[in-house]
């Protein structure tokens, strides 16, 4: 299968609202309607517990949707995930990168194993061809190929998070969902990683859904912003418009909080924006 030719869009339609269970309880009041295709660059912002991670996990089928439905190419996602080939088609087209935790890589397996496995399973690429593709992605993410032989505990958090990105990008997905991918990184690395993500998605026509509580980072990579609070979308629109003219008081308070931080930190340490800068 030629990975370039995988089409795809993911949509989530909640008639009432998708509801999670337990600690990730996700109780939306308003209907959710969400669509990502390979031209999207959506940023989802909101405070902790606003349901934004749950939303991202639902979109890739890692969390059940109890009301509403996630579709992939207009067919319900569970239908895809049930069969082996459907699962592989969907996973090859839509990849998800989770927030860095020390557990995002199997401690007993090398980073190389983690990056090569998706290639082998989703595209049947092994051996030299796989090594070539892995090297390509590592170069893109400015990672040392020597680290492939290392174990996750032997590299830094920033490197591990870039390896997590490599693991997702190596299969050439059409849609990339990122859940707090830069939140754990220090500011200088954040800028580099954000630039890489943005550039990669734009040049390769990869749809991006970027979930983060960091407003500036999200605004930098996203053309469209979705603001969530308590499991409900309070505002959405083109990034510029949301930033310049927030309609919902919650969005305004998020912006104000960010501006206040910036005033305290001062321009020299301005998070992300200083490191990223418009090209």
């Amino acid at each position: 299968m030629n990975p370039e030719s995988v089409p795809g869009y993911v949509a989530l339609r909640g008639d009432g609202a998708p509801t999670g269970r337990g600690s990730s309880a996700f109780t939306a009041v308003k209907p959710l309607d969400f669509e990502i295709d390979s031209t999207s660059a959506i940023g989802i912002v909101g405070e902790s517990g606003s349901g934004k991670s749950t939303l991202a996990r639902m979109l890739v089928g890692l969390e059940p949707v109890s009301s509403g439905v996630v579709t992939y190419n207009a067919a319900p996602l569970p239908q895809f995930l049930r069969s082996r080939t459907g699962r592989r088609d969907f996973r090859a087209a839509v990849q998800f990168v989770a927030q860095d935790t020390s557990s995002s890589f199997d401690p007993r397996r090398t980073l190389g194993d983690a990056v090569e496995t998706p290639l082998a399973i989703l595209h049947g690429i092994t051996g030299d061809a796989a090594a070539e593709r892995v090297a390509e992605v590592l170069a893109l993410l400015q990672l040392d190929p020597g680290h492939l032989r290392r174990y996750p505990s032997e590299v830094s958090g920033g490197q591990r998070q870039r390896f997590a990105l490599a693991r997702a990008l190596v299969v050439r997905p059409r849609i990339l969902l990122c859940d707090e991918v830069v939140s754990a990184l220090d500011v200088s690395v954040q800028g580099t990683v954000l630039n890489i993500i943005k550039e990669y998605c734009e040049t390769n026509a990869v749809g991006l859904a970027f979930v983060s509580h960091g407003l500036p980072a999200t605004a930098f990579v996203a053309r469209e912003l979705v603001v969530m609070r308590a499991g409900e979308v309070v505002e959405r629109g083109p990034t510029r418009q949301v930033l310049d003219d927030p309609q919902h008081p919650y969005t305004a308070s998020l912006l104000a909080a960010y501006r206040r931080d910036r005033a305290v930190v001062g321009p020299a340490e301005r998070p992300v924006v200083a490191a990223v800068g418009p090209a």
Partner: peptide, 14 residues
Amino acid sequence: HDAYLDAARMAGMG
């Protein structure tokens, strides 16, 4: 609940 299980799911593993 370790995140690498989700990563393996994303890699297409059953």
